[in-house]
Amino acid sequence: MDRSRRRLLAMAALAPLMPLGGCAVPPLTRVGSIVWIGYEPLFLARELGFYDPRRLRLVEMPSNTSSLMLLATGDIEAAALTLDECLLAREGGVDLRAILVFDYSAGADVVMAHPDIRRLDELKGRRIGVEETAASALVLAKLLEHAGLAPHEVEKVRLTSGRQVEAYRGKQVDAVVSWEPFATQLESEGARRLFDSRAIPGLLVDVLAARADALEEAPDNFRELVAGHFKAQEHLQSLPDDALRRMAPRLHLSHADARMALQGIRMLDRAANRDWLGGVSPRLGGAAAELAQTMRPLGLLQRAPDLRDLAEPRFLPGET
């Protein structure tokens, strides 16, 4: 084969990797998320076309534990997490920054129990399904505290979120530490709400956490990510029927059940996010410090967390 043909073939092979028109291909930012009503505006934003797929890719995860693992290895750049999980990752050496506060739970995190269990103390000796996450461990610990039970007085059954309904239906558990949309699905199987996050206000906060190095590499991607979330949130507020029609199928809920699930959380708008992330003493820092005081006696944190640079407001719309 002559030299000119070799050159042409080499150029053809490299063509898909070469930017068109001299424009650099934007870096791709991958964002992990489980199915949770509070994270749903991200997916609504994607459906409404607020995200450039060349820049942003939402990755559906089986659990927040999986998200934490991929954040640690750099296989995703950001993830929707609970604040306690963000603190765990930072203690483990992953430099995460909270660039958005989605919501705090006000009833959506719940312990669903067999209907013959009417009181908390009736959980003694029963099997409780729980995912191996910090958030679920916190709910279980607070449940037992309110019930006056020690950890050894119940049987803990490890469950991933996708197996909650199956395990309850198969009579493998008597109660489940759950959240929406799975709580509503369990209710349809006959389970009843025994305990929920209204009893532990402010303890379960959801954040969008990003690796510090990724924020420096692609700041415009993160501005687009956060701006799209707020646009989708405003769409939900102004056109709720249309938004819920789009959201319900991914949640595996009916339109009515999706609307009810939203009542269990308090979504935070732009102004609230400035309060939580901005200023000399961000509200998120106080919430994280209080949360750490709960986590350390449970063995979920080994030491008091370093909260410097946890709150990162510069990706909020209007911030620089």
Rank of each mutant, 00 (worst) to 15 (best):
A79V: 06
G278Q: 06
G74Y: 00
V205N: 10
L316M: 08
E145G: 02
K124M: 10
D269W: 11
E60R: 15
T82S: 14
Q185N: 08
G125D: 06
R296I: 14
E224Q: 15
V35T: 14
A248L: 04
L56F: 08
A24M: 05
Q172T: 08
I37V: 15
W36N: 05
S4A: 13
D116R: 14
A248W: 10
D241M: 02
P41M: 09
P282K: 04
F195P: 00
G190R: 04
N221P: 03
A137G: 14
A214P: 09
S66K: 13
G299S: 00
G22A: 14
Q293V: 12
A292Q: 03
T73F: 02
A243F: 09
V157T: 04
A243K: 06
L14F: 04
D257Y: 05
D269H: 11
V177W: 02
A261N: 00
R274Y: 02
R192I: 14
H146C: 03
E234R: 13
R250N: 07
F230I: 01
S238I: 05
D103V: 11
R303H: 13
R119G: 03
V94Q: 06
L143K: 06
R296A: 09
R266Y: 12
H252C: 11
R245T: 15
C86S: 15
G148Q: 05
R5Q: 13
V94W: 06
M69G: 05
G92T: 06
W36Q: 07
A72P: 02
W276V: 01
S254P: 04
A214S: 15
L123P: 05
W36A: 11
G38S: 12
E47C: 01
V280S: 15
P297C: 09
R250S: 10
S33P: 01
L253N: 07
G318A: 10
L268G: 03
I128P: 03
L251Y: 08
M61E: 15
A24Y: 00
A15R: 12
F222P: 07
G129F: 08
F43G: 02
F50G: 03
K171Y: 10
V130W: 01
E85D: 02
R54G: 02
A137R: 15
V25F: 07
R314K: 06
Y168C: 05
L87C: 12
C86D: 12
E224R: 07
G162M: 12
S281T: 12
